[in-house]
Design a protein around this nucleic acid. Structure first.
Length: 384
DNA sequence: AACAGGGGCAACCGCTTGCCG
DNA sequence: TCGGCAAGCGGTTGCCCCTGT
């Protein structure tokens, strides 16, 4: 059965011959591809437009990078996949010269196996049950030297060494020097509700001072500020990290004070909180409801904070989309109208970080409330 | 040398999305 | 608002090549 666009045509299928490639390249080079359905006819090809498009995009495009994936590209794929899931086109955008098809094939043929070999579920990036059981037997420590927690995605090692104290990290590297931190003491009655992580898949957020250090440039997310996220497996005591960087991002970090009850984490089952203030680029958080940021260190700017956008007071706390971040649970139950950033995004335009990815990162925070279904990584997938 | 099995990759299929009349 | 069309996208298939027996 042919494509819809060519069902009435007699089209060739299967592998492309060099002659066909040449015809297509010549035509596209000379005329472009404003309408793919017209391309085969004008190029003298017995193919459907859809096939021509695929051939061009996946193989003939001059800007394609051929050959094996580098270690860096591999790490990038894993990192972004952890956030976006099987959204190959989105992942491929972070790999110049690579196509979604190429990334997908590489994932299925190589990376997936590596993750499984490391004891990680390639779909969720969480520990596989077998590995979790094994590691739990070691009281959360890494007994084998093949600890998935050592699979630190950015290669920078910012959070690898902080397994014991840094469950989840969001930071941005380049303006680290402009910020210091203040610690907000968690009200004891509030902290458990906010940080309880009820199941194995709970993702935790926290702050890692080390993660605030500048990190070398990353090839992806070149359209926004950087975010570094680090995940610790609550039960196994393991941690992995991901970095979303770009050269213009501001620095920020979040921190949980030591000794937070039950793991310092954002819960799938609870309303979760990530605090950043896009009024100053990002993570310029100042006057935050102490109940919301219990146990967190909230970064404050040291130098010339940017003026707040319209509709926001300096230092007001805004994060993500309200519908995403403020899903109810303990936080919402207390009447907190948190994380509504829509007015900021649409208004002053002061944010510079990758909203799409950031939102993907943030989604998990609230989606489990009122029906904590699925796992953390599935909740990360942005529901566009 | 022949064969089987597996891996990698290119291409296809079908659904979704966006645009336009 | 609706329907048709084209493009985008992710999942799947099938072919080719390599390796082990």
């Amino acid at each position: 059965m042919g494509h819809h666009c060519c069902s009435k045509q007699k089209v060739k299928r299967g592998l492309w011959s060099p002659e066909e490639d040449e015809k297509l390249v010549k035509y596209i080079t000379a005329h472009g591809h404003s309408c793919w359905s017209a391309v085969p006819k004008h190029a003298g090809l017995q193919r459907c437009g859809k096939s021509c498009r695929l051939r061009w995009i996946n193989y003939l495009r001059p800007d394609l990078k051929r050959g094996t994936f580098s270690d860096h590209e591999e790490r990038t794929i894993i990192d972004v996949h952890r956030i976006l899931g099987n959204r190959w086109a989105q992942i491929a955008k972070h790999l110049p010269g690579r196509t979604d098809n190429e990334v997908k094939n590489f994932w299925n043929s190589c990376i997936k196996k590596k993750l499984i070999a490391q004891g990680l579920d390639p779909k969720t990036h969480n520990l596989l049950p077998a590995s979790r059981t094994l590691l739990q037997g070691g009281n959360g420590a890494n007994p084998s030297g093949n600890n998935p927690a050592q699979f630190h995605s950015n290669g920078g090692g910012a959070a690898v060494g902080s397994v014991a104290t840094t469950p989840f990290t969001i930071s941005s590297p380049t303006k680290a020097a402009a910020y210091d931190t203040v610690t907000v003491t968690p009200p004891p009655e509030m902290a458990p509700a906010m940080y309880d992580v009820p199941n194995h898949d709970g993702m935790l957020m926290g702050h890692d001072q080390a993660a605030a250090a500048p990190i070398p440039a990353y090839p992806y997310l070149d359209n926004g500020g950087g975010v570094l996220m680090s995940f610790r497996d609550q039960n196994a005591g393991l941690q992995t990290s991901m970095d979303f960087m770009n050269g213009s991002s501001s620095s920020s970090s979040m921190d949980h004070a030591a000794g937070m009850p039950n793991g310092n984490g954002f819960s799938q089952g609870m309303g979760a909180a990530a605090f950043m203030d896009v009024t100053a680029g990002m993570w310029n958080t100042a006057a935050v409801d102490s109940a919301m940021c219990a146990g967190m260190e909230v970064v404050q700017p040291q130098q010339q904070p940017l003026p707040p956008p319209q509709g926001l007071l300096q230092g007001e706390m805004v994060v993500g989309r309200q519908a995403v971040m403020n899903g109810g649970g303990a936080v919402a139950d207390k009447g907190m109208d948190m994380m509504d950033v829509s007015s900021v995004y649409g208004g002053a335009g002061t944010t510079t970080f990758d909203l799409e990815l950031m939102e993907s990162c943030a989604l998990f925070c609230g989606s489990g409330v009122g029906g904590a279904t699925g796992n953390a990584m599935e909740q990360l997938q942005w529901d566009c």
